[in-house]
Design a protein around this nucleic acid. Structure first.
Length: 636
RNA sequence: GCCGACAUGGCUCAACGGUAGAGCACUCGACUUGUAAUCGAGCGGUUGUGGGUUCGAUUCCUACUGUCGGCACCA
């Protein structure tokens, strides 16, 4: 029987040989390290018997496949430990995830931190027993009987969804059996280092209508060293948290007295925001967008007509009554932009029309979902609506997708996840329009050579969309850019343009936000740069630090020159030692520190210290100003 | 909204069933300073809010509010 290796080599082996035996035949070290094997493109247990010619590939912990199996097996170990310590608990599901694993349990009293400790300890004991993960296959009926006897009703629910004629696999290690597709590690002793990280509630099958289960998250590694490294990285990542940095760098705050999810932009944050917005406007003017500005509230009838009161009501702040009329804070800008469009009869000659606005909206978000700047109740969307003819569609889509990516890149972002969401089951609009729009979106992504995932049926009911998500320091994804077709509002509002044929036609409308919301974007910006912003964005670019009182006048003079040259500068004229002033400027992550004393005053120069780099030496003021201006120009 | 944890001066954190303590910040004074914390003194909280238990609570119970970690939601 011939076995083909990834490098193309072919070796002969006896029938019924297993991947682990093959690995052992190559080297003992390899056999010890591998976690799982792929035989003919299917991941299998290491003791899977190969009966005919096959391709084989091994995976260690350093591969995605390897980690996933490793963590999945650890999840089974977690379930075993929990069943041992809490016999009344029902097990449900426990997959591996991007960074570890979790297992959901049905337990009346939630796990405590103490429980977590005990469970972790028990897992370590159980792991050492070197129990084999034993695979068995049985018919669906046999599986039902088995789990019924065990009283595992959640497993029965899962089984109910599996076709009757399918072969079911179960895995047993020690006294614990779980319904599972596999594959798994050979034995529990492969799991060397375990850490349970947190507990939380989680709905059965992810549905809020179902019972809330108790979830335990954890992670495991082949060595303590790797676990410690992981925990260290986690701590480091927490230092990038925009909520922590937002306070430390005095960028913004959110006050209980004002209301949850409502942001106060402090001078430092507001300065940066203003730079972002100015740059945003400049780019939009260059792309022929027309700036508009619309009110924060609108009459109930408007939101009735747009459908917001019907579909979006629970996310809106309640009505404000004035003169017997109900008004609502706007959760979106679209109806206002449409009103501007409809203020005149529009000709095909005017299209495409692109209205852009930094539109501040208010949404009543669930209390549990609020999160720093990332999820707030009042935020400013960098919103725009592109209204065009069917003929203009492809070009406009391509334009906007490219514009969107380039804008993110201009702010230093390189990594983002792009999603294309297609027509859901419940949708408005013509299927042909959906297809046309979806193809246009897809083409633009391909043309720009962008990797993306397709979310089949994940579009909004009113149109397909492209979303771009950026990850925060703790690897949580936040949607920033969104480009969405809208087949709903143009119809609801009866939008029209007069075509060449002198007859009215319905335009296409694309709704888009490049940064998403300024608040969220700012949050991701903070975390992405860990507070060490590029010079052009820094609220304070230079701090002038006089060595002692005698040089304050000189420092003030330097400061004035800097400000005149559009460099954001401040003087630290407190009566402190230079080391103290430097320390504070470093902690505030100010990119340039100008240290001035007798030497500098005599030479009419400044001594420059760069944040995180240290002393750069002495500079002529004009030279360093030029350098900073160049950095700003180049968006460094 | 759901599950859990938490809530002490501007910030970070400590303590306790008998009316709270430190560092930083701030104010004042001394020092006149050369690349990540000079020294000294002072100011500042009744312990998120309401209710209850208790002779007495900040400490125990409870409701609410908010924050944090998840879940759900996120046109």
């Amino acid at each position: 029987m011939n076995i083909t290796f990834p490098d193309g080599a072919i070796k002969e082996y006896p029938k019924n040989i297993t991947p682990i035996e093959i690995a052992e035949s190559i080297s003992h070290g390899l056999a010890k390290q591998i976690v799982v094997a792929k035989v003919n493109d299917e991941l299998v247990d290491l003791n899977f018997e190969i009966v005919e010619d096959a391709k084989i590939m091994f995976f260690k912990f350093d591969s995605e496949e390897g980690r996933s199996v490793y963590w999945h097996s650890t999840a089974h170990l977690l379930a075993q430990a929990v069943r041992t310590l809490f016999p009344d608990v029902k097990v449900t599901i426990g997959p591996s995830i991007e960074n570890g694993f979790y297992y959901d349990f049905d337990k009346e009293i939630p796990f405590t931190d103490d429980d977590l400790q005990k469970i972790e300890q028990k897992m370590k004991e159980l792991a050492k027993l070197k129990n084999i993960y034993k695979r068995e296959e049985l018919s669906k009926q046999e599986a039902i009987d088995k789990f019924q006897k065990m009283g595992e009703n959640y497993k029965l629910e899962l089984l109910a969804d599996i076709p009757n004629d399918e072969i079911i696999s179960i895995y047993t290690q020690g006294d614990f059996t779980d319904l599972c597709r596999g594959p798994h590690l050979t034995d529990t002793a492969k799991i060397k280092s375990i850490k349970l990280l947190k507990t939380s509630g989680a709905y059965w099958r992810g549905d809020a209508k179902n019972k809330m289960l108790q979830r335990i998250y954890g992670v495991s590694f082949p060595s303590n060293k790797e676990l410690n490294k992981y925990l260290y990285n986690l701590e480091e990542a927490k230092k990038r948290d925009h909520r922590k940095l937002g306070k430390e760098l005095d960028l913004y705050s959110i006050s209980d007295d004002i209301g949850p999810g409502l942001v106060l932009w402090h001078p430092n944050g507001a300065t940066m925001r203003s730079i972002v917005e100015d740059y945003w406007k400049k780019r939009h003017f260059a792309k022929d967008y027309k700036l508009v500005q619309t009110p924060h509230i609108g009459k109930a009838e408007l939101w009735e007509k747009s459908g917001h009161l019907g579909f979006y009501n629970e996310s809106m702040y309640s009505a404000i009554e004035v003169d017997g009329q109900e008004y609502y804070l706007k959760p979106m800008n679209c109806p206002f932009h449409i009103a501007i469009y409809q203020s005149q009869r529009r000709s095909y000659r005017e299209l495409p029309i692109k209205y852009a606005e930094m539109g501040t909206v208010y949404r009543y978000e669930n209390s549990g979902s609020l999160h720093g700047l990332m999820r707030v109740r009042g935020f400013t969307q960098d919103d725009a609506h592109i209204i065009c003819t069917p003929q203009q569609l492809d070009a406009e889509v391509e334009n906007v997708v490219e514009f969107s990516i380039n804008t993110l890149r201009a702010f230093g972002f390189e990594k983002f996840d792009i999603y294309l969401s297609t027509m859901p089951e419940k949708a408005v609009g013509e299927k042909s329009d959906w297809d046309k729009a979806t193809v246009a979106l897809k083409n633009s992504l391909q043309k720009l050579n962008l990797d993306y995932k397709v979310d089949e049926g994940g579009g909004a009911f009113y149109g397909p969309k492209i979303d771009i998500k950026i990850k925060d320091a703790l690897n949580r994804s936040w949607q920033c850019s969104t480009i969405q077709f809208d087949f709903n509002l143009p119809t609801r509002f009866g939008m029209e343009y007069i075509g060449e044929d002198n007859a009215p036609h319905r335009p296409f409308m694309i709704h888009r936000a490049l940064l998403g919301s300024i608040e969220r974007f700012f949050g991701t910006l903070i975390e992405y740069h860990a507070g060490n912003f590029p010079v052009w964005l820094c609220p304070i670019q230079v701090k002038v630090l006089p060595i002692s009182d005698q040089y304050i006048d000189y420092a003030q003079k330097i400061n004035e020159i800097l400000i005149t040259n559009n460099i954001r500068s401040e003087v630290d004229f407190r009566n402190e030692k230079i080391g103290y002033k430097i320390r504070e400027a470093e902690m505030m992550k100010i990119p340039f520190m100008f240290i001035v004393g007798q030497k500098e005053m005599d030479a009419n120069s400044v001594s420059v210290r760069r944040h995180q780099e240290g002393d750069l030496g002495s500079f002529r003021l004009a030279d360093i100003i030029e350098k900073i201006q160049k950095d700003v120009e180049e968006k460094k």
